[in-house]
Design a binder for these strands. Structure first.
Lengths: 172, 172
DNA sequence: CGGAGATGCTTAACATGTTAAGTGAATGCG
DNA sequence: CGCATTCACTTAACATGTTAAGCATCTCCG
């Protein structure tokens, strides 16, 4: 309700009265967060109808294209941290959407794969999901979308290995 | 640790053996998530040293530029949901970083403002934070950064009001 | 062979995201 | 005025993000 014209400058920025910093609403993390939320807002209702969260869906999608994967590999693919993945896999397994079996060569590793039920669920969600993506693509423009993704990739690349500098000289 | 050349295609995509969908790693939400994480990874250590989380920092920044704000307004500015904000404000207040007092005209509203201590904390964090932002800007390119932000804003705009379609015809 | 260290994964603990429900205060309307 | 509705905010409940420990298993080197 009270849907204002979405003014990102907040209308009346009263000239930072204390600590001088960049305009808050224009920070890069904020822009990325807002953009992502705008996109995900489109998908969440559909996923919810199928009893899936965003992350569960990510995992199923990753598995559907990979046949079987180790947990660590899956974490990398679905871009989830180990602990999150661990919990989600436990739940998905309880719902019989995935299957798990320890590798024969290494008892530590476990191979995860999507189950028949999981595939069925995916098949029932995918059409809507694809339709939404198509709508987004059309609204924003396919060309621009490709450009945006390109820039995002470059951003990621340009920051890769920047945070690894704390391995030299930091005891604690 | 086995830092591969960051191949987003996962190297060996075995032609989706079940449900056909876009290449997972190239979905827009994923690109946005990865980009944002790459950026935030740079800031988190510094914030952590000062005992602040990303969201707490967002709130302090928003408050520092606004003098005082209602909770709802603050939620919009810091892009947080009400419940999250409610919890965080409770904690920040307990740490004396913010102050709160109910509005005289409307007992429901409460005005939030940053405290003297909060300002001090901000002042101690801001320099590092700005330095990191400058480094990111330099690495990625100021021009490109502006372009990226522009596109992100357009994306947000083009999706605004798309999710509001469920107000017509949906009883439950 | 054996034990120290590395590895793969899980648990734990705390903070936030997300949705729904609850609570007290203000509004509007008969 | 009375009372249902709306509003601003908080609580609750569950899922994930994030960091640190814990626990087997595996590797490697003496």
């Amino acid at each position: 309700m009270a849907k204002r014209p979405a003014d990102p400058t907040n209308g009346n920025v009263p000239a930072a009265h204390q600590v001088p910093m960049r305009d808050f609403s224009r920070s890069l993390p904020m822009s990325l967060l807002r953009a992502r939320e705008a996109v995900m807002r489109q998908f969440r209702p559909s996923l919810r109808e199928h009893g899936l969260t965003e992350q569960q869906w990510r995992i199923l999608r990753a598995l559907a294209a990979i046949e079987a994967a180790e947990v660590t590999e899956l974490a990398r693919t679905a871009f989830l941290l180990g602990p999150s993945l661990s919990r989600i896999l436990r739940d998905l397994e309880a719902r019989n959407l995935i299957e798990r079996k320890t590798a024969k060569t290494d008892q530590r590793r476990s191979m995860v794969s999507i189950s028949k039920e999981g595939v069925k669920l995916m098949a029932s969600v995918a059409p809507t999901s694809e339709a939404i993506y198509a709508e987004i693509t059309q609204r924003f423009g396919a060309r621009k979308l490709a450009e945006l993704q390109e820039m995002l990739g470059e951003l990621e690349q340009s920051l890769a290995g920047l945070g690894a500098a704390n391995e030299a000289g930091a005891e604690e």
